[in-house]
Amino acid sequence: MTDVAVPNTTRKDWASDQEVRWCPGCGDYSILAAMQMLLPELGVRRENTVFVSGIGCAARFPYYMSTYGMHSIHGRAPAIATGLAVTRPDLDVWVVSGDGDALSIGGNHLIHAMRRNVNLTILLFNNQIYGLTKGQYSPTSEQGKVTKSTPFGSLEAPFNPVSVALGAEASFVARTHDMDRKHMQEMFRRAHAHRGAALVEIYQNCNVFNDGAFSQISGRDQRAEMLIPLEHGQPIRFGADGGRGVAMSTDGHLQLVDVAEAGEAALLVHDETREDPGLAFALSRLARGPFEPTPIGVFRDVVRPEYGAGMAQQILDAQERKGPGDLATLLASGGTWTVS
């Protein structure tokens, strides 16, 4: 297959014939479009691309792609995708998940896929609500959130998906949002190119059950002041004219500063490849929620041995040592005796 050029494709080639059934106005549409428009640029083949999902609104994603796909059960997509990725290193395996699917019922699978560094590209559609079950709070909903299951306000502190991923040893972690196709595509492209587990958190608007959850930061008029773009090797700054930035205070905290006051030299220079995840973690905690200036972009991109490759290598090493397995030898390996 490698000797044949990857055929040229367009967005249409990546769309299945199934009618898309998300609520009109749902942020999922723009994520789907971003993906279908990006894939023709990635030089990949439909037959070698697999989308695996769990349960939730986001999890319908594979049905709308003309690739191989599996819409599995709640929370289990990372585990299923792990089995696929380690046995089929020739495939591009994408996991599509939501905040409930990935961080509640499937939390265990998510963290272990990242810890093992399985070659998966994981898209976490975070809308901070349960959409498919019609509006209960999720593990990323803010404390105090009033929903059908929390009429007096949620008592729970939310997860910060980027912090969780960094804590789970993820080798690639990024954040983007559904209002900026170009940025989404750039994050997807980077995540896809990464070898190992890559997690992209996508702030996604659920206009039916949690409309405007991110409007304070991702609206066209808010972005400049409320989104902090992370760019590798660049001082971290934001604001209409780049007038604000992120600096480290003398006590080791990250803080937002006016560049004019603090001076350019004081700004933190973003380094995605830093071994120590501490600064990336601090950046992930900069905003307490999507109502304060929030970093987006690649938080971390480090090289770590990929799990499936390690598994394959152990097989090659064993075959080198012992030769390919011979069944008759195996069956006799416990010692034998002969009756004649």
């Binding site: 599995s72 585990a79 792990t82 089995g83 272990h112 097989i315």
Partner: peptide
């Protein structure tokens, strides 16, 4: 392993079967 067997000690029973399904 020299038989080409891949084994994954999964994070839980569910991942054990899930990975096998994958």
């Amino acid at each position: 392993k020299h038989f080409g067997v891949r084994t994954l000690q999964a994070e839980d029973e569910i991942a054990g079967i899930g990975s096998a399904i994958g």
